[in-house]
């Protein structure tokens, strides 16, 4: 559901989030919808998720972007971790946007997710995170997100929220 909300937001608020020609990383890309829409909006996107979902992700992304995008999206494995510097050194990446939808639910890697968001967020990067916020664990993550980043609420509809975070 948050992926749908984020895609709709990105399509309808291009003056707020202009993806044209921007470098984008998606965390927990899952089925790939956000990556596909961001690519159609002109971004150069790298979609990441766990290795076991990449074949379906790649198939969805290729099927929906081939011949429709200036920059074909890339698909890569990425496990959320505290220690990304060894595998993804900060000197080797600079993203304009880090996108994440439906990544906060009942799982044991919320701290690693936040560490991953922080790792890829540099000055000039905006982390845009869309999620339904309902459970206690969701609220805790939201508080930690606000502590980690300068945070603004881009969109809200009942439980559905889209936050933007930039470097502190």
């Amino acid at each position: 559901p948050a992926a749908l909300a984020l895609c709709s937001f990105l399509e309808n608020h291009r003056e707020k989030v202009n993806l044209q020609g921007k470098k984008v990383l998606e965390l927990g890309a899952g089925t790939g919808l956000v990556t596909i829409v961001a690519s159609l909006l002109g971004a150069s996107v790298t979609a990441t998720d766990l290795p076991e979902v990449l074949s379906n992700l790649r198939a969805n992304v290729m099927r929906n972007t081939r011949g429709r995008c200036r920059q074909m999206p890339q698909v890569a494995a990425l496990s959320w971790s505290y220690n990304l510097e060894s595998t993804h050194p900060s000197s080797a990446h600079q993203y304009d946007y880090v996108l994440a939808a439906d990544v906060v639910y009942h799982h044991d890697f919320l701290d690693e997710l936040l560490a991953t968001m922080k790792h890829f967020c540099k000055p000039g990067t905006a982390v845009i995170w869309a999620n339904k916020v309902r459970l206690e664990s969701d609220l805790t993550f939201t508080e930690n997100f606000k502590k980690a980043f300068h945070t603004s609420l881009l969109y809200e509809d009942e439980d559905m929220k889209i936050f933007q975070g930039t470097c502190r």
Partner: peptide, 18 residues
Amino acid sequence: TLIWIYHYAGQDIVIYES
């Protein structure tokens, strides 16, 4: 643009109109 998404390979199609 119609976007066709498989949730899991070959099952549960979601269609999103961009």
